[in-house]
Design a protein around this nucleic acid. Structure first.
Lengths: 224, 224
DNA sequence: GCGTTTTAATTAGGACTCCTAATATTATGA
DNA sequence: TCATAATATTAGGAGTCCTAATTAAAACGC
């Protein structure tokens, strides 16, 4: 397998930690989904699409949930059979289909997305500062994974054109969202915001530098 | 579902972050397992048992991987068919079965447990301090989940009778492992140590207090 | 403009996970 | 001792998940 230079042991431990937590997440998902007569794969699709009123292409859903397109076709068929989802042809591309939730599906998806789980109960016992640090670390990891092509582009604040890092230096909520025109702190940063609009690559890079370094914004705040 | 008082939004975001990372972990596992003609469930069993030379009961394996006993029986049968694992009756309890890896299974399991993954590549880009903080946070979460009964007891340093928190205050590696008789830093803390021996509950509680607060050890270091 | 290549989705086929319920067997305890 | 609990497995069934092959539409090259 990979005998070329064993990796730093701390990396293995951190991966193990994530794996342990992932097992609990999966168990939580079985519990929540099972109550509704579904399984984790179906629940994940509902939770994902609940935040996407316009729907998503089958291929994009597969990419977001890290399964193959045929696997996703199976799951979409199961959900359509259960009247929780509809597939319609994409007007912009006759090959593609767009999957949207029905009303019932949307209600279920929202419930899955906001349901309390055992992992959240454990997270609640961390201090607010630890929660903020953890969120920041997750954002860094997700950004790296995204840049490596391991996951599709996420709708995070840090890549949004409405995001103004360190617009209010030295305050508890140093950043700013120009869309809602409100200050935001580290704990408020979204991983999947419905209002996200990707900034230009150059702006994204500059925004990230400012965000990560705590330095003042590098660009004129006039493009909104 | 759970309409009683929506949870703190930051908890949902943190769970989402873990979910994103969990998807990558699963994809990594498919990739590694697929190369060996296995699937994630089988690879997880091999990785778990590779660290348990004495083997583990079927029920315990199921608990560790958060699946039902019949599901685990399926997976164990698949692995036995592939000659990667053997089931033998437990001499201490004629109802129980102990699963052990064959030589081939052990080699594969070790490879899975130490293989580099996309998540580890991303983790490597964090600073050493961030890695230490993240590991500490994971330990806190895992400990809480363990106390809540969401996961079985783990073989972590912080619950081991050989662990001496803050034995070397104000040093880079403040803790100490009496088994290997060496100082250990936060980054060295194990989540699953083969030499783990559970300390008495009272001692565990005192150890945790000292560890989490950074205060000196509360007990006489004479029980080893 | 028209063939070639690429892309999106699905079907086909098969291994296997995962569940609940039921069963056999052994341990535990009133 | 006899009922209860615990361990594992079998039975049955839904559904995930893969790769390979297929259909159809879009994009590209010249």
């Amino acid at each position: 397998m990979d005998h070329a230079a064993d990796p730093d042991p701390v990396l293995i431990r951190l991966r193990e930690g994530f794996e342990r937590i992932a097992l609990v997440l999966r168990a939580d998902l079985w519990a929540a989904a099972g109550d509704a007569g579904l399984n984790p794969a179906q629940a994940q699709v509902l939770a994902l699409l609940a935040a996407r009123p316009a729907g998503l292409r089958a291929k994009a859903i597969a990419a977001h949930l890290a399964v193959s397109a045929p696997s996703m076709a199976d799951t979409l068929s199961a959900l359509e059979r259960k009247r929780l989802l509809q597939r319609t042809p994409d007007p912009a591309d006759a090959r593609a289909v767009i999957a949207r939730l029905t009303e019932e599906g949307r209600a279920l998806g929202r419930a899955f997305a906001s349901a309390t789980s055992q992992v959240m109960v454990a997270l609640a016992r961390l201090s607010p500062g630890e929660q903020a640090d953890l969120l920041l670390t997750q954002i860094k990891l997700i950004r790296t994974l995204q840049q490596a092509g391991a996951i599709p582009v996420q709708r995070m604040c840090v890549s949004c054109r409405h995001f103004r890092p360190n617009a209010h230096p030295a305050e508890a909520r140093p950043h700013h969202c120009a869309f809602v025109d409100a200050p935001i702190g580290t704990r408020d940063l979204r991983l999947d915001c419905g209002e996200h609009e990707a900034a230009d690559p150059d702006v994204q890079a500059a925004t990230w530098t400012s965000f990560a370094d705590g330095s003042p914004p590098l660009r004129a705040p006039a493009d909104d």
